[in-house]
Amino acid sequence: MSRSALKETKVGLWRQMKQHRADYLMVFPFAALFTVFTIIPILSSMVLSFTDFDMVQMPLFNGFSNYIRMFLNDDVFLVCLKNTMVFAFITGPISFACCFLFAWLINELSRGMRTVMTFVFYAPSISGSLFVIFSWVFSGDMYGLVNSVLMELGIIRDPIQWLSDANYILGVCILVQIWLSFGTGFLSFIAGLQGIDRQIYEAGAIDGIKSRLQELIYLTLPHMGPQLFFAAVMQIGASFSVGSVVTMLCGSPTTDYAADTIVTHIIDHGTTRFEMGYACAMAVVLFLMMVGTNQLVRRLIGKFAST
């Protein structure tokens, strides 16, 4: 590009920006708050991750030592990393698939039933801390629901400590997490499925689509790309940030850190030990994993659906 052309585009850009003055003004308040409470925290955690910082003294540059400590000298972090991976790459996809499966099944129902079932599946995600009721269902004494049923049936003789035995904690948390996972992504599926043009199904039937399974694979899924991607983004957000569920059900830390995640480990170091530099370094690792997964999922969904 010649110098004058460059100058021209610069002038053009400036003129364009001036024309949009009102638009910038309208976006500004939101953008400013968004920057302060989302972008700056993420950026500053990247900077602080290379420091030793306790909120009292000035941050002290210490190179990569937080990252080295994380992977070489902190066995608990590695356990938390493993648990986060389990939530992200096993629980997450299962939840995602369940959201789609049940939205699709619900879509087969008549209008009234559809409304009721949508409510039944969505309600857990907005019911606040109702999930603590699971600590009764899985209570470790014989009054706990699961224990008493198993004991009545003669499957076990003594109650199992579901919420404090390291063998079971993670399983229980996964179950509760799946119960909680029918959120906005699920609603997006419900709405998206209703929005698909009926004509493509008519055309499909004429073209020889025989079963509803074929209909799902050849007609429905390819039209759900945008919703699949939205739900995937929300699911990634939910499954990498599992934390309060674990803490409220099984305590913090859990027995042998059996269900602790990176988020609970960050909160442990950030709020009780005030090792902000180290907490930020872990947050950065978490951000990178989330963004990476996001890119991966975007590519996967792009393969079989148009986005």
């Binding site: 989302t38 925290p41 602080l48 940030s241 989330m290």
Partner: peptide, 19 residues
């Protein structure tokens, strides 16, 4: 903003606290 849909409260909590 679309990318930030993923970053809900509990993930950014500590960096947000610092800011």
């Amino acid at each position: 903003v679309v990318l930030a849909l993923m970053f809900n409260g509990s993930v950014t909590q500590i960096p947000q606290y610092v800011v």
